[in-house]
Computed example of a mutant assay.
Amino acid sequence: MTFAQVFRDTYLPAERLNKSKASCDKEEGFLRNWIEPVFGDKPLRDIAPFDLERLKKRMLDAGKSPKTTNYVLGTVRQVFNFARRHGLHEGENPVRLVKKPTSDNRRLRFLTRAEAVRLLEALRERSQDLCDMALLSLHTGMRAGEIFALTWMDVDLERRLLTLRDTKSGKNRIAFMTGDVAVMIQARAAERMDAHGLVFPDRNGKKRVEVSNVFQIVADSLGMNDGITDRRQKLVFHSLRHTYASWLVEQGVDLYTVKELMGHGTLAMTERYSHLAPDTLRRAVRVLEAGLKRDKVGQVVNLGGQRQEAHYEP
Score class of each variant (00 low, 15 high):
Gln233Asp: 13
Gly304Met: 13
Arg173Phe: 08
Ala144Met: 02
Lys100Tyr: 11
Tyr11Leu: 00
Arg307Leu: 15
Glu146His: 04
Met193Asn: 12
Phe7Ser: 01
Ala190Ser: 12
Ser65Pro: 05
Arg84Ala: 15
Ala4Arg: 09
Gly197Met: 00
Pro94His: 12
Asn302Leu: 15
Ala114Ile: 08
Val218His: 02
Asn225Cys: 11
Pro314Ser: 12
Arg283Lys: 15
Pro13Phe: 04
Glu92Thr: 15
Gly40Phe: 02
Asp41Tyr: 01
Lys21Tyr: 10
Val183Phe: 10
His89Tyr: 15
Leu276Ser: 03
Ser103Asp: 12
Gly141Asp: 09
His238Asn: 05
Lys42Ile: 07
Asn225Ser: 04
Glu260Ala: 09
Ser246Met: 09
Lys171Val: 11
Gln186Asn: 14
Leu235Asp: 01
Lys171Pro: 04
Leu261Asn: 06
Thr68His: 14
His264Thr: 13
His89Phe: 15
Leu281Arg: 15
Glu271Leu: 14
Arg286Cys: 09
Ser137Phe: 09
Thr229Phe: 10
Phe148Tyr: 11
Leu240Asp: 02
Arg16Asp: 01
Phe30Thr: 05
Arg106Gly: 12
Ser239His: 04
Ala83Gln: 03
Phe80Trp: 09
Met177Phe: 10
Asp166Leu: 08
Leu162Tyr: 01
Arg109Glu: 01
Ser23Val: 10
Leu60Ile: 09
Lys57Met: 12
Lys64Asn: 13
Thr229Glu: 13
His86Lys: 10
Gly304Ile: 04
Ile174Val: 14
Gly197His: 00
Ala175Met: 10
Val155Arg: 02
Leu303Asn: 06
Gly179Leu: 13
Leu136His: 01
Phe110Cys: 10
Phe80Leu: 06
Ala187Asn: 13
Leu97Met: 14
Arg45Pro: 02
Arg283Asp: 10
Met1Ala: 12
Val285Phe: 07
Lys293Val: 11
Leu44Glu: 00
Tyr244Lys: 05
Asp166Asn: 13
Val38Ser: 01
Ser169Asp: 07
Gly74Trp: 05
Ala22Tyr: 07
Arg192Val: 08
Asp132Ser: 10
Val117Ala: 11
Ser239Thr: 08
Ser23Ala: 13
Thr266Tyr: 00
Thr167Gly: 01
Arg126Pro: 00
Leu261Lys: 06
Ser221Leu: 06
Phe80His: 09
Ala190Thr: 08
Pro278Tyr: 02
Arg173Asn: 10
Ile185Ala: 02
Ala83Val: 07
Arg118Trp: 03
Leu119Asp: 07
Ile147Ser: 04
Leu222Gly: 07
Lys67Arg: 12
Arg96Val: 10
Thr266Cys: 04
Arg272Asn: 08
Thr280Asn: 07
Phe80Arg: 10
Val95Ser: 12
Met262Gly: 08
Ser65Gln: 08
Gly298Trp: 02
Thr178Tyr: 04
Met262Leu: 14
Leu60Asp: 07
Tyr273Thr: 05
Thr68Glu: 09
Arg107Ile: 08
Phe176Glu: 11
His275Asp: 07
His196Ser: 11
Phe237Lys: 07
Thr270Gln: 03
Ala134Arg: 00
Asp129Gln: 08
Pro66Val: 12
Met142Arg: 06
Val155Met: 07
Ser212Asn: 03
Ile147Asp: 05
Arg173Ile: 12
Ala175Thr: 09
Glu210Phe: 13
Pro278Trp: 02
Val285Asn: 02
Thr75Gln: 06
Tyr312Asn: 09
Arg32Gly: 00
Leu52Gly: 07
Glu92Val: 15
Leu198Tyr: 05
